[in-house]
Amino acid sequence: MNEILSKLYSVIEDRKNNPIEGSYTNYLFDKGIDKILKKVGEETAEVIIASKDDNKEDLINEMCDVIYHTLVLLNYKNIKLEDIEKELEKRNEKICNKKQERRPIENI
């Protein structure tokens, strides 16, 4: 799984650095953060719907869309997959990790 995510992230990064006309990834980068966030939100909602409909094939397809758009967001924000991996490794070491209170949302 890590290999395919790395390959996809590399393609996204390449599109960002070497735009190709007609590329959907370039379209997202050109439109900017608002469009990328809109797509992450839309695809996440579609994951919820596919889960409620109990349709495995739709859920897999929508999860792939969420992963792709999330990777675009990470790349847009200059966050590497290694940064995510490190954080997941830290979290994996925790036991009895009850969620803390969420901090207030700022800059909306």
Rank of each mutant, 00 (worst) to 15 (best):
K35F: 14
Q100I: 02
D53W: 01
L5S: 13
L8Y: 10
N97C: 05
T25A: 11
G32F: 00
K39C: 02
F29P: 02
E21A: 10
K77L: 09
K7Y: 09
E82V: 04
D14L: 06
V40P: 00
G22A: 13
E46N: 07
I95G: 04
K38G: 04
D30M: 09
V72Q: 02
N17Q: 12
K80S: 10
E13G: 01
S6M: 07
I33Q: 06
Y68H: 12
E82L: 04
E85F: 07
K56R: 07
L74F: 03
D58T: 06
M1V: 15
R102E: 08
K31W: 08
G41I: 07
N55F: 05
K38A: 09
T44L: 12
N17I: 03
M1H: 12
D30C: 09
I12N: 00
N78Y: 09
N17C: 05
E87M: 15
L5E: 07
D58C: 02
Y24H: 10
C96I: 10
Y68S: 04
D53E: 11
K90H: 06
D54S: 05
L74S: 05
G32I: 06
E89I: 13
D54G: 01
K80L: 02
N107L: 05
I36Q: 08
F29G: 00
N55P: 03
T44V: 09
K52Q: 14
